[in-house]
Simulated assay, not measured.
Amino acid sequence: MRQNKRWNQQVVKKENKTLVLDSIRNNAPISRADIASLTGLNKGTVSSLVNELLGEKLIYESGPGKSSGGRRPVLLYFNQLAGYSIGIDLGVNYLLGILTNLEGNICHEKYVDFDNLTYEEILQEMIKMVDYLSAQTETTPYGIIGIGVGVPGIISNDSKILLAPNLNWRNIDLKEELESKFGVPVTIENEANAGAYGEKTFGIGKNHHNIIYVSVGIGIGVGLILNGRLYKGNNGFSGEFGHMTIEVGGTKCSCGSEGCWELYASERALIKSAQRNNIHIPDSKEISLEKLISLAKNGDHDSIQLFEEIGKYLGVGINNIINIFNPEQVIIGNRIAAAETWLKEPLRQWVENQTLWFSQKDLKVDFSALLTHSAALGVSAFAVEKFLLQAIETNEGAIS
């Protein structure tokens, strides 16, 4: 009985400590008295928990602040420099790595293009990227607190990569490989889920609670924020809308199905269409998204038409998703967002003409504010949250 009572006290203390830390993170600078008022905890509890957090270097104090009549209060701040997080967005043909502080501010980044690499070769590129970003850090109490990786594939709840069709990966345990190499916690997440969380936390989705994030790169993935929380489905497999059929008997997809949405509305679809239409790229034999954007900026009619066609097909899939989920906001992100100028109008027209009228009420269709950084920021934030939760559990002293 005594053991149960102590366990209950520990659970309550952990919850209260998390509440105090979150209050400081979200409202700094803030005084102890204001934390007590905000959380409903008594001043003695707040003072004790604040002292623990100060000792753990997760917060610091400065001040004093303005007085409301008595002694001027000492103000508390979240210590965003207590450690660093590494977030990596793994694309089909690129790696984007960022080093952030605990508030998600990007301190350094590195981008690497590649083509048709094996899993082992991509793993080595990722290791080199982590080594490079780790070398950019300054001395902090906790150092590198974790690594997050966004992967374009189906991720199980225990972070196994079950299938990444555009990378030809099946049953890959990237988490174990990286944790064994670097000795820090690793989070593996579907890149569209990570992008949705990145936009909700740092981007254009901050003020919305029901968000559909459409990540458009070589393939298409969808992340769902429902009632303010990331929705992952029963086993973590939600959001595979890139593989919903939009054309019966259509083109064969790498997932094994036919007529999938990403075959008609992705970066790969854009490039294949450009090749079919013999789009001429000056001084280059290679067709890429960036080169097509450059042509469109210079008024090239054929490349603009290609983007408009992709915009229409994006609208086809987004219309279906809107009718299913009735969201507040749809965000188009990842590499294709750089072509907003030519995608936006055909997408808007399709949604306006095809989506049920009542589903369009209070609906916003936006392009990402973070462009290519949404997923990397999202997995970096997952790593930070995991670290803070673990730090509170690990650093707990005696029950006070």
Rank of each mutant, 00 (worst) to 15 (best):
I287R: 05
Q9R: 15
G40C: 03
L41S: 04
G217L: 01
S284K: 04
L371N: 11
L133M: 08
S294M: 13
E396M: 15
L347T: 12
L133H: 06
A381Y: 09
G150T: 06
V316R: 03
F182T: 03
H208A: 12
K17L: 15
K364M: 11
K206H: 07
N4V: 12
G146Y: 00
E345D: 11
L58I: 08
Q360T: 07
L123D: 01
G217C: 02
I271H: 09
V186Y: 02
W342K: 06
N320F: 06
F325L: 14
K291W: 07
F387Q: 04
V151G: 14
E290T: 09
N193K: 10
D113R: 10
C253P: 06
G250Q: 05
K206E: 01
A383L: 02
N93R: 15
I271R: 00
I24K: 00
R276E: 12
G299C: 07
A383Y: 09
Q124G: 05
L370T: 05
K128Q: 12
P165M: 02
L363W: 05
F78R: 01
T139N: 11
S85V: 05
Q349K: 15
S294V: 13
S238T: 08
L314T: 08
D131Q: 06
I304G: 14
A381D: 14
G239K: 13
V248R: 12
G217H: 02
L270W: 11
L75Q: 05
Q354F: 15
G249V: 10
Y111H: 11
Q9N: 12
G311A: 04
Y197P: 01
L388I: 13
N235E: 01
G55R: 03
D283G: 03
Q349P: 05
G40D: 00
M126G: 14
V20F: 01
G198M: 05
